[in-house]
Design a protein around this nucleic acid. Structure first.
Length: 597
RNA sequence: GCGCCCGUAGCUCAAUUGGAUAGAGCAUCGGCCUUCGAAGCCGAGGGCUGGGGGUUCGAUUCCCUCCGGGCGCGCCA
């Protein structure tokens, strides 16, 4: 099982601080000692500012107090404590022994590819709702960011031990899908025009104002005509649009689902908005809001008193004067149901343009007697597509957007997912298609995958050379004593804490930096081992002469192979959390850049 | 006008939830292939963190105020 070095260190600090308190030197101590990894290696492996925080209440100089803590830290001792010191205004820096870090490799290998995984935790149970794109057409490139962030976030949360459900809310009720049906019907009529349908002259109909104009609508119109012949032909849309609507929605959802399969994004539950209406949950929610006393009836409409509940600037309509519920009411019903289903935290991922919706939903939860903070909303900023630094021309007319399918087809799933996750979700993203496609060192996806492939390659070569594989032991790992090797061991050891932090912050994009750092450190080591240390993991060709098998240090090689395997596993795990593959071999696609020489 | 988000190297972005000398990648310049994968490595230059004030041992981070950008402010979803 995964262990956290940080909590081990925290316990050391805690014990020393407890002792200081028992000795009557400070009045009170914090529940949890803050422990951080200093940016600068000179500051040791871990540091705490606890003396700075306690100095005032203890009436002591921070450095003096730090010295007292350090004294007790040293007394408690332990062979793993290589160095403890007071620095700067009163930080306590702590360095662990090489042996400690070398032994972590035993833990990492024992985790058997699951290093970093958190202990399962009972709470909070989290429902992550994301994407929830309207079933009115294919996913476009901006949806890709939602899909990538939501999917990686849920992978990360699950890996960190949370109980998570992934849900897609299908907006299959209301105006948008009504317009979808009308648009499809109009295209159907267009296709039927001029044909002889049992003697009926097919009239020309105008395409609806604000209708969906994508080519897929035309195709759906044709398909409808194939299946249903002249059933819906007429000057006006049929009184019962339901069959057309259902047909169109189901086709659009097929398109969306197919794209998601290609993108390797999975949902556990597909919740239909319409089902909430049909089951009466929407109307019962209105009743509940009214019973709670937060409903106003005026101007023929029904209002939720969000101004009273949550300091909104105006109340919001939940039922229109035509008697139909608004989207807001259905959404409130949906969130109410989520809580009733037993989720502690509702994590929604919305487009940043919906941010005005957040306080209203929180107001509604409050009205229903729930803690508004159980809803957390991640707002995703917009994506702009670039090609070689220039914006991709997008048609002004509706329907001419670049689809997610097109992006994936052009640059591949790995690069697409990686690029969507390179930035924090609340900052706008510039997505450069040419850069993502480029198979060179300025492309961070290939850089990371290349590092993994190099590890795999080394392990492959080791097998070809029949390098002896020795069982992992602390004695064997004592051979990993280069500064670069210890540094990599630190980073691998840090992975569980890193996962924990990224999950707690709901920030999957942090994995991108972790991967970049880990890959970079390994690539650097790989070259430096040879250039600076004049060494290599495996005997190279020029060294394989004479009785090389007898003279080569196979112990060190065996230790390094374990270490390389650990690096490979963590890279694979971290890439997996992003939904990016970890190839054992990098193959060049296309031979365009070949030199003519 | 009101509300939310964002201003960090030439460009794109980090910065461990208030920590120590603000870091990467790209771009620019200069080095490294008698092959464990050069899709790589090493080095250099580049900053008043938009401006100003405040809170404290300490601010890119928190508060106020300007400046500049994005997005909202429907009986649409």
């Amino acid at each position: 099982m995964t262990s956290s070095v940080r909590s081990t260190v925290r316990a050391l600090f805690q014990a020393a601080v407890d002792q200081v308190k028992r000795d009557g030197l400070v009045p009170a101590i914090p529940d949890s000692i803050p422990v951080e990894r200093p940016k600068r290696p000179e500051h040791g492996d871990y540091a705490t500012n606890v003396a700075l925080a306690l100095a005032k209440s203890a009436g002591k100089q921070p450095r003096a107090l730090a010295e007292m803590i350090v004294e007790r830290l040293r007394a408690a001792g332990g062979a793993d404590l290589a160095e403890v010191s007071v620095a700067g205004p009163g930080f306590i820096n702590l360095r662990l022994s090489d042996g400690f870090w070398q032994r972590r490799l035993l833990d990492i290998l024992a985790a058997d590819g699951r290093w970093g995984q958190g202990e399962p935790r009972q709470s909070p149970r989290i429902l992550v709702e994301y994407l929830s794109a309207n079933p009115t057409g294919p996913l476009h490139f901006a949806h890709g960011r939602h899909a990538a962030v939501g999917d990686s976030l849920t992978r990360l949360l699950r890996f960190a031990g949370y109980d998570v459900l992934r849900e897609y809310y299908i907006n299959d009720a209301g105006n948008q899908v009504a317009m979808l049906a009308l648009s499809v019907w109009a295209r159907y009529m267009e296709a039927a025009k001029g044909e002889d349908w049992t003697g009926v002259i097919v009239p020309e109909v105008a395409f609806p104002e604000g209708g969906y104009r994508g080519d897929y609508i035309r195709e759906l119109g044709l398909e409808l005509l194939d299946h249903e012949a002249g059933r819906f032909v007429g000057a006006d849309p049929p009184a019962d649009m339901e069959p057309i609507k259902q047909f169109a929605i189901s086709r659009c959802m097929d398109m969306i689902r197919n794209t998601l399969v290609k993108f390797d994004v999975t949902f556990d539950v597909w919740q239909s908005e319409r089902a909430l209406h049909d089951s009466g949950e929407v109307s019962s929610t209105l009743a509940a809001l009214e019973q709670a006393g937060f409903i106003d009836r005026r101007d023929n409409a029904v209002w939720l008193k969000t101004t009273v509940l949550w300091g909104d600037d105006k109340d919001r309509v939940v039922q229109k004067s035509d008697g139909l519920p608004t989207y807001l009411l259905a959404d409130i019903a949906y969130h109410r149901k989520k809580i009733e289903r037993g989720f502690d935290e509702l994590c929604d991922i919305w487009g940043a343009d919906h941010h005005g919706h957040v306080p209203r939903m929180q107001a509604a939860l409050k009205a229903l007697g729930h803690d508004p903070n159980r809803l957390s909303v991640l707002l995703i900023q917009m994506v702009s597509l670039l090609r070689d630094g220039k914006p991709v021309a997008m048609g002004k007319r509706e329907g001419e957007f670049i689809t997610l399918d097109e992006v994936i087809d052009e640059i591949g799933r790995d690069a697409t997912r990686f690029f969507y996750l390179m930035r924090r979700h609340d900052t706008p993203l510039e997505f450069d298609l040419e850069l993502a496609k480029r198979q060179s060192m300025d492309n961070p996806v290939y850089y990371a995958q290349y590092a993994h492939a190099r590890c795999a390659s080394l392990l492959r070569r080791a097998t070809e050379l029949e390098a002896p594989r020795l069982p992992p032991t602390a004695e064997l790992f004592a051979r990993l004593n280069l500064p670069e090797e210890i540094a990599l061991l630190r980073r691998l050891s840090d992975f569980p804490d890193f996962v924990d932090d990224a999950a707690a912050a709901r920030e999957p994009h942090r994995l991108v930096s972790f991967i970049g750092d880990l890959a970079g450190e390994f690539q650097s080591y790989y070259t430096r081992l040879q250039k600076v240390h004049g060494d290599s993991v495996l005997p190279q060709e020029r060294q394989r002469v004479g009785n090389w098998r007898e003279t080569w240090d196979w112990q060190k090689t065996a230790a390094r192979l374990h270490w390389v395997e650990a690096i490979r596993q963590v890279l694979e795990t971290a890439l997996g959390l992003l939904g990016v593959s970890a190839p054992a071999v990098m193959k060049r696609i296309g031979g365009e850049g070949e030199e003519a020489s």
